[in-house]
Simulated assay, not measured.
Amino acid sequence: MSAPLPRLSAAQVAARLGVKPETVYAYVSRGLLTRERDARGSTFDALEVEAFAAGRRRAAVRTPTHPTTGMPLGVVQTDVADIEDDELLYRGRRARDLIPQPFAEVVAWLWNAERIDAPDPAIGSARAMVEALPLPAGAMDRLRAALTGFAADDPLRYDASADTAHRIGWTLLTGLPVALGGRPHPDLARSLTSTWTPTADDATITAVNAALVLAIDHDLAVSTFAARVAASARADGYAAVSAALGAADSPLHISAATRTARLLARVNRGQEPERALTDALQEGNGIPGFGHPLYTGGDDRAAALFPLLAGLPDGDRTMDAVHRLSEVVAARTGLLPNVDLALAALVSGARLPHDAASTIFVLGRIAGWIAHIAVEYAEPAMRLRPRGEYVGP
C-alpha cells in the first residue's frame, strides 16, 4: 500500500492559482475545491487543484474564432507558424511532415537562406566564455555565455537586415553545439548530440533531429515576442536572440522541459506517478509536461515525437513511465501530454542529462526566433513599443 500523498497548504494553493487565500476558501464554500482539516489547518489535493487550474485556463481562452483570440495583449501578424485543427504548420506545411528531413535543410527552406557555418575564431570565443563559467553551470547559463562569445567576436552584427540575421542564425545553429562541447558535423542533430555522448545511436539522432524541427516555432510564444520587440528597436541579431533566451529561461516556457525531465526521472526510478506529480506540484507552476491552451486534442508536437522514442536505448522503459504518468494525469485533470513531456522522454530514453531537453528546445527555437527577427527588421522601427495606462495614485 502506497504512503499517503503530500498535500498542499492553502497558501500553496493560493500561489498556484494566483489568488488570495480568502479566495481559495471561497472556492471551497462554493464546492469548487475540497479540503481536509486537521490540527495543522486546511490541506488540499494537489491534482484536484491542478484540474481546477486547468479548467480556469480553458475557460479563459475559449472563443468561437481562434484559440489565441483574447489571450495576448495584442495580435502580431506572422507568416512563420500557425496551428489549424490541432496541427502545427510552418509556412503552410505540416511540421510533422518535415521531421524526416535534416534540421539544417528545414531551416534553409524556412529562411530561404543558404547555410554558412560559424567561423572557428567565433566558436573559440564562445567556448572560452562557456569554460569560464563556475561549476556546475546549467544549460541556460551555458547557452547565454556562448551567445555572448559569438556576439563579441562579430563586428558586423549591427546591420539590421534579413541577410545579417540569417548569417547570425547560421553561426548560432552550427556553432553553439561545438561551443558547448560537441563535435562539428554537417548533421546538426549529430553535432548537438555529441555534446553529451560521442557515440549516439541512429535512433537517438533521428529523434533529436525531429525534436529540433518540431521546436522551431509555435504561434507567438513569449520568447518569440521578446525577440520581435528587441528587433523592433533594431537590436542586433545576437541581442534579439538574447532577449528571447531570457524569456525562454522561465518555468512556464522552455525551462519547463528540464522540470518535466526531473518529474519523469522520478517515475522511471520507481516512484508512484501520484507521488511524483504531487512533489512536482509543490514546486509550483502546475504539472510540467501536460496541457497546452492552443490544442483541444493534444499537443501535435508530442504526438509526432513519441512514436520515434521506443527505439531509444531506454525507450521502452521510458515510454512505460510516460504512459503510467499520462494515465494518472488524464484521469485526474483531463490534461494531455505536451512537447515538454516528449522532450523529457527523449532525453531519458537516450540517457542524456535532464537539461539536454532545454538545450534541444532552444537550438530548435533559435531557427524560429531568427525567422521572426528577419521579418521584424522589414517593419517600421519601434512599432512594438506599447503605451502604458497609468492606474496608480
Rank of each mutant, 00 (worst) to 15 (best):
T359V: 13
A81H: 12
I366C: 04
L312S: 04
L336P: 07
L176G: 05
R228S: 09
A256Y: 04
V241D: 12
T69H: 15
I360T: 02
E105N: 00
F103P: 00
G31L: 06
A210D: 01
A203F: 01
A280I: 01
A14V: 03
L192C: 03
E376W: 12
P184C: 13
V178T: 11
A378P: 02
I360Y: 09
V328E: 13
D314C: 06
D340I: 06
T197V: 11
V329K: 04
T68R: 14
R93F: 11
A331Y: 04
T43N: 11
G289R: 01
Y90A: 04
D97F: 01
P288C: 01
D38Y: 04
A374F: 09
P313D: 07
P273H: 05
R127W: 07
R269M: 00
P307M: 08
E50D: 08
G315T: 03
R142L: 09
S194V: 13
A14D: 03
L343F: 11
L180Q: 02
L264W: 07
P102F: 10
G392Y: 09
A53I: 00
A321G: 10
F306Y: 14
D219A: 15
A95N: 03
G92M: 10
A378G: 15
V267R: 00
R317H: 00
A10R: 12
H185N: 14
H292Q: 05
N338A: 01
G368S: 06
G392C: 08
L325T: 07
V106E: 02
A303K: 14
E105V: 00
S250F: 08
L245F: 00
V107K: 02
A126F: 08
D79S: 13
L305S: 01
A3R: 14
T278W: 00
Q77E: 13
L336W: 07
L88A: 03
S232E: 04
V130Y: 09
T148K: 11
T78G: 13
A265Y: 08
I99A: 02
V213M: 05
A60Y: 15
A302N: 10
L8Q: 02
V362Q: 10
L264M: 06
A310Y: 14
P177N: 08
L8H: 06
R259C: 02
T296Q: 14
E48W: 09
F225G: 09
P313I: 02
